[in-house]
Amino acid sequence: MEFFDVAWRLLAVLVAFLTLPLLVGQTEHKVMAHMQGRVGPMYAGGFHGWAQLVADGVKFAQKEDVVPAAADRRVFQLAPAVALVPYLLVLIAIPIAPNGVVGQVVDAGIFFVLAVLGVGVLGQVMGGWASANKYSLLGGMRTAAQLLAYELPLLLAAASVAMAAGTLSLPGMLESWQWWWLPWQLIGAFVFFTAGIAELHRPPFDAPLAPEEIIFGPLTEYGGLRFALFMLAEYAGIVVISALTAVLFLGGWHGPFADQLGWLWMLLKTAALCFLVIWMRVAWPRLRADQIQRFAWTCLVPLALFQIALTGVVKVVFL
């Protein structure tokens, strides 16, 4: 019984991990197209190009697996897996409905999640170093610098919620969540979401990839299935960051009829945040590498510290 329960949960997480990123990717195709007055893919699968990403996947799978002669072979081949797997692990710990509907209850869930999230970015650093390509190296360095700069505000903002809830467990945080936490933790939400996007290298923080400047940075030398895995990691990252923001700051499954419809509220909040990620990509230009650093150190870190102070004061004085 225990075994089947665990197996069922893991299978559900795996299915979500394989479908949700594709759903976000397809939404990005369509939303970006319509925001630019286009229609996006229309043919694959027959109805409004719903199977475009499946077709892309088939194409990627058919391509030759190339490793550059000068590359650090092992590291180069391992990097996509290092980039992708952490997001799968994080997804296990994210609660989607009340009463323990979660892949696996982790007591120090927020620690686990944030620690594993940082590993995902390492995949890109590995790819950037192992490719033996100057563009990849540049991108890898920028990735590393960005990871260092944004990990701090990410952790501080998450710590603020942990302080407010008085627990490190993600389901525990949701249990104690009240609606007025929304304005209370608003600054933290902004910092966490922004830092999360920056860790994923999504526009406007995509200087490490910057296709027009350093030709996709760490991904320059990748092709075929390994490149597809990096892409999948990017979209899985969007899902994970949006879901985490929803859980930590938007109340996750809280909403009318949460007992029955909790999973729907969670999905809706996650989807809205994913839409925001796509929207920002369409609307805003890319920040320079130095602007990205300045934004993190002079804006996000002080804001996160202020949020922690605010959380502490409210917690001590009013609760």
């Binding site: 319509h34 925001m35 630019q36 929207w279 920002m280 609307a283």
Partner: peptide, 9 residues
């Protein structure tokens, strides 16, 4: 920028 893209959509 956000307004223009949303209106276009």
């Amino acid at each position: 920028g956000l307004a223009v893209t949303l209106r276009t959509m």
